[in-house]
C-alpha cells in the first residue's frame, strides 16, 4: 500500500502533465495564428483589399477578386448543399432505424473521409472536362460535396435533440409526421442547424486542392460563375510558390484574411448556440 505522500505526488504529476498537454495543444494554434498575423499584417492595407492583382513583377495590387471569388464560390456551394444536407438530416432523424437510413449515414461518413483533391478531380471530370472550361461552378460543386456530410450529421443531431414531446404534441393534433417535423420541429432545431452550416462553411473556406483544376484562378474581376474565378485560398498557394518577394508577402496577407474569416465564422457559431441555449424552454 502506497504511502499518502507518494499518491499525492503521483496525482500532482498527472495533473501537471495533462495541463502541459492541453497548453501545448492551445499553444500550437496560438503560434500558427500569431505567425500568420505577424507575417501577414505587413501586407494588409486598403489597396490589398480592394485592388486586382498587379502583373508579375510590379509592386502593389491586391486580392479583391479573390475575396469576391471566395464569397461567390462558397455562396453557391451553400445554396447547393444546404437543402440536400438538411433534408437528408431530417430524413435520418425521422427514419433513424431503417436499413436505408443506416446505409445513407454510413456513406455520408465515408464521404467525409475522402480527400478533397479526389473530390476536386471528380468535379473536374464531371463539370470541367466535358465543357473544356474551368469554372467557379465546378468549384462550388466540389465544395458542396465536401460540406454535405457535415451538414447531414449536424442537421440530424439538431433535429433529434428537439424533445420528442413537441413532435408528439403535433401528431396528437392530427398532423402527418412529415409536416409536424417540417413545421414544428425544424424551427426549433434551426439555430443548431445554422451553427452546423457555419462550421461547414468554415471547413470549406480554406480548401485549396479542389480549386487547382476547377476554379483555376484568374487575374481579372469575375462575377460569372461559369468562368474561371480567383479564390482566396488559391491565391495563397499561387503567391506562396512565386519567386517574387512582394507576392510572397501577399500570400501571408491572404492567409491572414482566411484565418480571420474562419475565426469569425466559428465565433458567430458559438454566439448563436449560446443564444439558443438561453432561449430554450
Amino acid at each position: 500500500m502506497k504511502s499518502y505522500r507518494s499518491r499525492r505526488i503521483a496525482d500532482a504529476v498527472g495533473v501537471t502533465w495533462s495541463f502541459l498537454c492541453a497548453f501545448l495543444a492551445a499553444a500550437v494554434l496560438l503560434i500558427i495564428l500569431g505567425y500568420i498575423v505577424v507575417k501577414g499584417a505587413a501586407a494588409i492595407n486598403w489597396q490589398f483589399l480592394t485592388q486586382l492583382p498587379h502583373p508579375v513583377g510590379i509592386e502593389g495590387g491586391g486580392v479583391a477578386n479573390g475575396i469576391v471569388g471566395s464569397i461567390i464560390t462558397v455562396g453557391i456551394a451553400v445554396l447547393i448543399a444546404s437543402p440536400i444536407g438538411i433534408m437528408t438530416g431530417l430524413y435520418l432523424a425521422l427514419f433513424s432505424r431503417g436499413g436505408f437510413a443506416s446505409t445513407v449515414r454510413f456513406l455520408s461518413d465515408v464521404l467525409s473521409g475522402i480527400p478533397s483533391i479526389t473530390i476536386g478531380l471528380f468535379a473536374y471530370a464531371l463539370l470541367v472536362a466535358p465543357f473544356k472550361h474551368f469554372s467557379a461552378l465546378s468549384a462550388s460543386f466540389a465544395f458542396a460535396v465536401l460540406m454535405l456530410p457535415l451538414l447531414v450529421r449536424t442537421s440530424e443531431e439538431a433535429i433529434r435533440s428537439v424533445p420528442r414531446a413537441i413532435l408528439e404534441g403535433a401528431l396528437a393534433l392530427g398532423m402527418t409526421t412529415f409536416r409536424s417535423t417540417l413545421r414544428i420541429v425544424l424551427p426549433v432545431a434551426w439555430p443548431s442547424i445554422v451553427t452546423g452550416l457555419l462550421l461547414a462553411i468554415a471547413r470549406v473556406a480554406g480548401e485549396t486542392a479542389p480549386l487547382l483544376f476547377t476554379a483555376f484562378g484568374s487575374p481579372f474581376w469575375e462575377l460569372n460563375p461559369t468562368n474561371p474565378m480567383a479564390v482566396l485560398s488559391l491565391q495563397v498557394f499561387t503567391y506562396a510558390i512565386s519567386p517574387y518577394r512582394s507576392q510572397n508577402v501577399q500570400s501571408w496577407g491572404a492567409a491572414l484574411l482566411l484565418v480571420v474569416a474562419v475565426l469569425a465564422l466559428n465565433l458567430l457559431a458559438r454566439v448563436l448556440l449560446r443564444t439558443r441555449i438561453r432561449a430554450a424552454p
Partner: peptide
C-alpha cells in the same frame, strides 16, 4: 387523431 385528441403528462406547448 382529429377525432381523438391527446393531452400529455408534461405540458408540451409549441
Amino acid at each position: 387523431r382529429h377525432k381523438i385528441g391527446m393531452v400529455f403528462q408534461r405540458p408540451n406547448p409549441f
